[in-house]
Design a protein around this nucleic acid. Sequence first.
DNA 1: ATTGGCACTCTAAGTAATAGAGTGCCAAAA
DNA 2: TTTTGGCACTCTATTACTTAGAGTGCCAAT
Lengths: 343, 343
Amino acid sequence: MNLSQRQQRILSAIVENFIKTGEPVGSKLLSGQLEFQASPATIRSEMAWLFDMGFLEQPHTSAGRVPSHLGYRAYIDSMMTCKPLTDAEKNEINSLFNVRDPDPDKLLGDAAEALSGYTNCATVTSAITPKTVTVRRVELIAAGMGTVVIMIIATNGIIRNKVCRVDFKVTAEVLEFFTKFANARLVGRSIDTITNDYINSVSVTLGEYSRMFTPLLIAIYELCKEINDGQYYLSGSTKLLEYGELSQLVHDLLVMLESRDNLHALFDSGNYDFKILIGKENSSMELSGASIVATHYEVGGQKAGSVGLIGPVRLDYARIIPHLNYFAKKLGEVLEETYELDN
Amino acid sequence: MNLSQRQQRILSAIVENFIKTGEPVGSKLLSGQLEFQASPATIRSEMAWLFDMGFLEQPHTSAGRVPSHLGYRAYIDSMMTCKPLTDAEKNEINSLFNVRDPDPDKLLGDAAEALSGYTNCATVTSAITPKTVTVRRVELIAAGMGTVVIMIIATNGIIRNKVCRVDFKVTAEVLEFFTKFANARLVGRSIDTITNDYINSVSVTLGEYSRMFTPLLIAIYELCKEINDGQYYLSGSTKLLEYGELSQLVHDLLVMLESRDNLHALFDSGNYDFKILIGKENSSMELSGASIVATHYEVGGQKAGSVGLIGPVRLDYARIIPHLNYFAKKLGEVLEETYELDN
DNA sequence: ATTGGCACTCTAAGTAATAGAGTGCCAAAA
DNA sequence: TTTTGGCACTCTATTACTTAGAGTGCCAAT
């Protein structure tokens, strides 16, 4: 199923026109637009062929043609030429990442928000926790007579804390004891090995104090689980309301995006370098009218999270893909800096 | 403008029917439904009067009547009888608040989510910071060679932390020095007095070290500002997509709810015990087709935050108001416990 | 292989007709 | 004086029909 040069031009012109206008594209328009000479009739016969091959769809007999998901696919895979970012665009993104306090949490959140502004889509950024990430430190801070803040700092810079109610009186001695104890058992240990079972095994070594410190141990487990589950930042989901073609789906779509598990499945499951899923290529019903575009960023030479977006099928892929890539590159670089400085 | 007994019954029947069905209510339906005997014609003449007085609206000449915002107002203020919560409902709410670790942040977030489930509306919970709240403690935790986590614990149990990049090598001595310094200047000080000016005045007392610690001082200011600005938890905003009557507004509404400032203006500005704003009673355009219902919760005898919801005008107020009240009461109680234990 | 011509199809928009819900008003009844 | 049945009236929602226009498919001529 090889497309001739001319067929490719016709298909890409259809895709580009449709992306721009959202209207089905007719043979007459193309005839006047294409750089080579061809009558509407000629183009019609090519379009008929592209239609038979499944690259085009027809809303109804007397409308123009619309790219099918196969058409988008062919366009993206072998016809599209990405529009490189202008210097102004690059600078804008650079300045976003040029912050003094690179708190990974905040950075990822801000990145999602900014990206959603550039692309007018719902965007997701995530931080996953590779198996090589370990506990750097456990800290306990007295927050009141019966309240302790417990904080876990991981080697990838992720910090999580939790307020914890305890039955004993919170004194400096007790905290020091438990801090030493917890650090001895946890520091340097891979986050994903801090399971319920491991916590239990640690607990028994506390002997008679085991019961007293149970709330803290549970909190440690929960914090590690939280870190291990990764972080997801969703932004600009209201942008999806602006696309008429999504109006049927938008409710289910937004509900779906509220779930961390769904975001994980969409952006951080499976191996991929750059993912583009167009409409029906998505497995889930809610996404059947939407597209997903996603890529990874790396820290320390390994996958550290994703940057992606959800939008209508009719997306300006040629513009969005370089954006995503540059974003992911920058994000990785900034996080890398923090990472290297501290390790 | 006093309504007769019968007029009140007719108005409330119209409101209740409309809340239930969303359809304009006609005289025939009411005639068969009301507990007293009255022909459609009689009811029509009463309806005409209620219409003239502004309690009812008419979508068009030959439709039934719909309550105006004045009609809702009269219904809510003097005719409605709230449906008390069933024991089952109470238990469900109780169990939500019956948690071992009452982290205020998590609690408020969970509360918003649960409330949105019960009411099928977008819900907001907030924690404001009264002037009586002071800094309980400042903690610094080394997170890496050039990275410090700075944490502020306020007397109302709110805890905020921030990752901070510094230029010097993070050693135990330096941290101890600055921790002592910061605590000496901040502990016991009302959060809202920790302004930029105050931080500057503190900074100069550091003399030659002032420059070195500037990032930390800035972070302290930002954290205090964050605490002082209050916390807002929005949940279930997608529920608003389910109400057809809001479809025109829902995009602007959702965008508006994304802004912390707007939530503050809606729920924590001005003095009120229980707020109900119906449609046009709202000042902002985005809310002209929606209703706001909100109340406060208290900790230590003073206003500590709000619980509220945004939904269509056609809300089951009689059911929702007791829910909100019970929720606010419980929330205050749980937070009060933490508060008392630690003070 | 390409093209102009032409009949064909389908949509979108506009018009007209109809049924039905609900009202307003009036004169009669209570 | 209030209530009620009766009835004409108004407006919407639905359906059917028409028409203009866009675009196609196909065919015969180039």
